[in-house]
Design a protein around this nucleic acid. Structure first.
Lengths: 337, 337
DNA sequence: TTTAACTATGAAAACGGTTTCAAATTCGTG
DNA sequence: CACGAATTTGAAACCGTTTTCATAGTTAAA
């Protein structure tokens, strides 16, 4: 592997001059510039990025923290983030926490050890005070979760309002006994959604049912199980806010196989407008988030913070959501896909 | 940010000794070891990874090349790869080529510039001769695509056999006029599958139809379009090998909306056994790949090659596939999920 | 009592770049 | 023509580690 020194010698010039050519800096006359370019070509020289990083104190790399990339919501978000970062010349390291607070902290160490210039967190599984410790090592931007105490920029949709809209919709369709599902009440998102759900329930004075299982709804399988448990314990529930298209799909799948009519006997609302929600039969009413726009904005903010250094004060970017009404809550009519 | 020098001074020892403690090396007596540990704690010292990389010529990072992470097949593969790599202490950089051969080459530069120790390619969009150029810079392992000429280790399933099995299954179900779909005939995978399809078609002497659109089948939307074009141009087709669960889902969705009965009028086979294939109604017959096992094996091989340096000769790891028979090809009966 | 082998420590070199600084040359302007 | 400003170049410092090598003390074997 040739080094810059080899190139300099081969061109009969100094390292400094070669470095100037590599970095497109001025103060190199054309003739020498050509000689350097030629020497680089002859030797097949490529600058060593570890050396550059060390001297310039930049890695041009960011880390993205997420629970699991197989969740379509996150994979769409990462896809857009990577694309945007790549446009800016940044690499992306993916960090799956698998919902573990310890893994989250382990990955945050990347910031302290200067393996990345900045970090995006799409989920948070530690107290903010613990995460704040890492802020002096580099910028962190949150995308998706809204942490009250966080003193860094955040991007999110109004989860409370979204849940309120979805719940109101269920009520307007005639549901009288609702259930609220979530992936666990320890996340800020589930808490906000619950507030929105409760607001609608109280405002319209409809009843609702609670159950231990209801806060463990994370995937298709748990959706199926919850349907079964509802059938046995309280079959009078006629509307469910699931907080996840996959959970909704599981419920619908199981309902169809058990002769329960959707939406007549049971209306179901999902979340995220994933591919599956359009394809299920009946198709799933769901809340759409502008995930690509959110992802792009997030990367832009982070890179901007990286490049102008210094501490940055919190700014909130709240994106709009949309309730996509489909046949899992409304009688079949001509609804365009 | 304290450096190793600061720690050394604070502990009244040399950089060398501190370095030994950091790296758990012998030849440091217990008392001094404690003093170093204490100094590191006092100063909040963290070793700078750029400096380590430069000196030790290792990055502990690998890159994974893939078309798009939103494709569930790839997101499941990456999820498993990242998890495995993380267990070995390696970071993962994700590189989405978006089917561009140029982006593929750009990302391969990571290997030459020593930003990563090795690379996994799950798709290949350049001539092998072009990729081979990068091999001297670090190991590359292929996962998913089987390139004949490749002189590096490869992991894959027998795509030809898989397509043959699926096609045979369609024929056994009584299909007499088949269609073969793919995402483009420039990939080794599509070519292998086509061979398998043709083998079955010829062996059983059934007819098949070709059309320009048929090799542009990449997602739900194109599945829908292809269904429409089939309806108009050749409605006698009664069996389709799609090579993708999403394409199959698009076809089924559109068929249901147009009163075409699946599987009676039209049988459809997907590929990859994605979540959606179980949930569609009818559920989709599909080919399952042991994607997690393939991913883990791939990471293990790569890291092993990284750690023992030197050039490695090609080894092929062929994993088994399974045809999951569901209702998109068979009459509805009690088929367990 | 030597000698060899092992333990413990630190000074200095090395990794491969970028940045600073000084010196030499050229240019522009009054 | 003189003098300050701008251009061109390279030597040397620097980024923060790990590794090599030399030295000294300790232990074990001969």
């Amino acid at each position: 592997m040739p080094t810059i020194e080899d190139v300099a010698r081969h061109a009969g010039l100094s390292r400094t001059t070669v470095s100037r050519v590599i970095n497109d800096q001025p103060y190199v006359c054309d003739e020498k510039r050509q000689r350097v370019v030629g020497a680089m070509r002859d030797l097949g020289y490529v600058p060593n990025s570890s050396a550059r990083r060390l001297r310039s104190q930049k890695t041009e790399t960011i880390a993205i923290l997420l629970p699991r990339i197989t969740n379509p919501f996150f994979s769409h978000m990462i896809e857009a983030m990577e694309k945007k970062a790549s446009e800016w010349g940044y690499q992306v390291i993916i960090c799956q926490t698998h919902y573990s607070s310890q893994k989250e902290l382990d990955y945050l160490e990347l910031l302290r050890t200067k393996q990345v210039d900045g970090m995006i967190m799409t989920s948070v599984h530690n107290e903010w005070s613990a995460i704040e410790e890492y802020l002096p090592s580099g910028p962190i931007v949150l995308c998706n979760e809204n942490i009250e105490e966080a003193n860094t920029s955040i991007i999110y949709i109004d989860q409370q309002e979204a849940a309120y809209d979805a719940t109101t919709h269920l009520i307007e369709q005639g549901c009288e006994k609702l259930a609220f599902l979530s992936g666990g009440m320890d996340s800020s998102i589930a808490l906000s959604r619950r507030r929105g759900f409760m607001k609608a329930v109280q405002q319209y004075n409809v009843s609702f049912v609670e159950h231990d299982d209801f806060n463990q709804a994370v995937d298709v399988e748990s959706g199926r199980e919850i349907f079964q448990s509802i059938q046995q314990e309280d079959a009078t529930i006629d509307g469910i806010f699931t907080g996840s298209d996959e959970v909704a799909a599981g419920i619908i799948y199981e309902a169809m196989n058990n002769g329960v009519s959707i939406p007549d006997d049971l209306a179901v609302v999902g979340f995220d407008n994933q591919t599956i929600s359009k394809l299920m039969n009946p198709s799933i009413t769901t809340v759409e988030q502008p995930v690509v726009e959110m992802a792009e904005k997030c990367v832009e903010i982070l890179i901007q913070q990286i490049e102008q250094r210094g501490r940055h004060k919190r700014e909130d970017y709240i994106f709009p959501h949309t309730l996509k009404k489909r046949t899992s809550t409304t009688k079949p009519m001509a609804i365009p896909m």
